[in-house]
Simulated assay, not measured.
Amino acid sequence: MSLMTPIGEPPELKRFSGQQRAAALMLALGREHGAAIWEQLSMEEVKELSSTMSQLGRIPSAVVEHLLVQFSGEVASMASLHGSFESTERLLEGVLPTDRIKDIMEEIRGPSGRTMWDKLSNVSESVLASYLKNEYPQTVAVILSKLRADHAARVLAELPRELSVDVIQRMLRMDTVQKEVLTQIEQTLKTEFMSNLSRSQRRDPHEAMAEVFNAMDRSTEEAMLNALDDRAPDSAERIRSLMFTFEDLATLLPSAVGVIVRRADKREMALALKGAPDELKQLFFGTMTERSAKLMRDDMASMGPVRARDCEEAQSALVRLAKQLADAGEIMLVDPRSDDAMIL
């Protein structure tokens, strides 16, 4: 059953679209009860749902009651939830237009990007080169000509030398590629490469567990990792290498720290920095104006003694903010798995 089910509907419900019903439900759930749902939505979905919500106008009480009762009944009847591509797509069918659902599902099934060439630019050069080395050199030349220059360069470096030289020569002689040829190549990439890639890609469970550990308070994190050291030392070491900690903020570029400073809650940041190493404090202060840095130092001094746990929670909040900004492409984080690589 979905929000579109007509059984027992009040007559007024018919004039509300699927997205309007979802918006009305979220409005009725409010901030406290709807927060967990909002957190699962993409930024684009949040914008669409918020836009719809702002234009709802008056909603009859019978409609609100029906949506809440139906939602409550569906949740109560579930023994458990199973999240999958298929269940997600079924859920969106009652909320978003078909073409929008198709775009969303293509994005979450494969590398992100609006066009096929955007998606390819987010595929590892070694994976892409492994696929391209079995293609005709002219096809490879067309594909690489559509990628970002930096990514094309890395893919060329991964290809066998003879093939890469052949591809470069073809790229130099290439005229405007006919639209029909590009369409055919895109379709082949979609059906043969991207579909296989999305099925073969599996997230390292250690990465997911590193995120769980990042969300723990410091004492619990250390206790858990120490216990894991005794039972599975290799896994413990892998998790540690993947965790991004408060101390890792010291590896960020000053411009990235400046974005964090502007977006962070000032009281929370003062609490986090109060327990920070001097080097990290100076990095943060260095991105502020002289007046702002003085006010921040004054705030820290006026706090007096604070609990270590409160400092750690504030530091964890700054780390979460840094990750959110990195996911949104606003800053870059140093990849803890590499000494010199940087990731968006």
Rank of each mutant, 00 (worst) to 15 (best):
L144P: 02
D229E: 14
R238T: 15
I104R: 04
S87Y: 08
E290K: 12
R238D: 14
M26Y: 03
V167L: 02
S50V: 10
L295P: 07
F284W: 12
K281A: 03
D118H: 08
I331R: 01
A227T: 13
V212W: 03
K119W: 11
Q184Y: 11
D339I: 04
I168Q: 12
S164N: 11
T5G: 00
P10M: 05
P254C: 00
S54H: 08
D204R: 08
F71Q: 06
L144Q: 00
T5V: 08
E12T: 07
M43G: 03
L321G: 10
M303F: 14
G258D: 11
P6T: 09
S338T: 06
Q169D: 14
M105K: 08
L67A: 08
M78G: 06
L228S: 09
T191S: 09
F85Q: 11
G18H: 02
D99I: 07
V46L: 05
K294E: 15
G34N: 00
R58F: 12
R202D: 11
M194C: 01
I239H: 00
D150S: 12
T191M: 06
Q70S: 07
I343D: 04
L27D: 11
D265C: 07
E192I: 10
L29H: 05
M288W: 07
I108H: 05
L333G: 00
I143H: 10
H33E: 15
I101E: 06
A341G: 12
A35I: 09
G18R: 01
G94Y: 11
A35P: 01
M53C: 01
E192Q: 05
I331E: 10
E247F: 08
S195R: 10
E45V: 02
F213S: 07
T188L: 00
T245P: 01
A272V: 12
M243F: 12
E86A: 08
M303P: 04
P277A: 06
A270I: 03
N226P: 01
L271T: 15
T289Y: 04
K133T: 15
Q169N: 13
R114Y: 14
L197N: 09
A326R: 01
Q178R: 15
V123L: 10
S338P: 02
G258K: 08
M243N: 06
K190N: 15
R263F: 14
S72W: 05
D298Y: 07
D103K: 08
D339G: 12
S17C: 06
K47W: 06
L56W: 02
Q178G: 13
M269I: 14
D234Q: 13
N134G: 14
G286A: 00
V64C: 01
A22I: 01
E89T: 06
M116N: 08
S51N: 11
A308D: 11
M43K: 03
A270N: 05
T191A: 10
M116V: 15
V212L: 13
L252S: 00
L344V: 15
Q40Y: 05
E12W: 10
P10Y: 04
D204M: 00
E125G: 03
S87E: 10
L67Q: 04
G34W: 09
M224S: 12
L325S: 05
M303V: 06
Q55K: 04
E65Q: 11
Q40D: 13
A256H: 07
F284M: 05
L49I: 00
A270R: 04
Y131E: 14
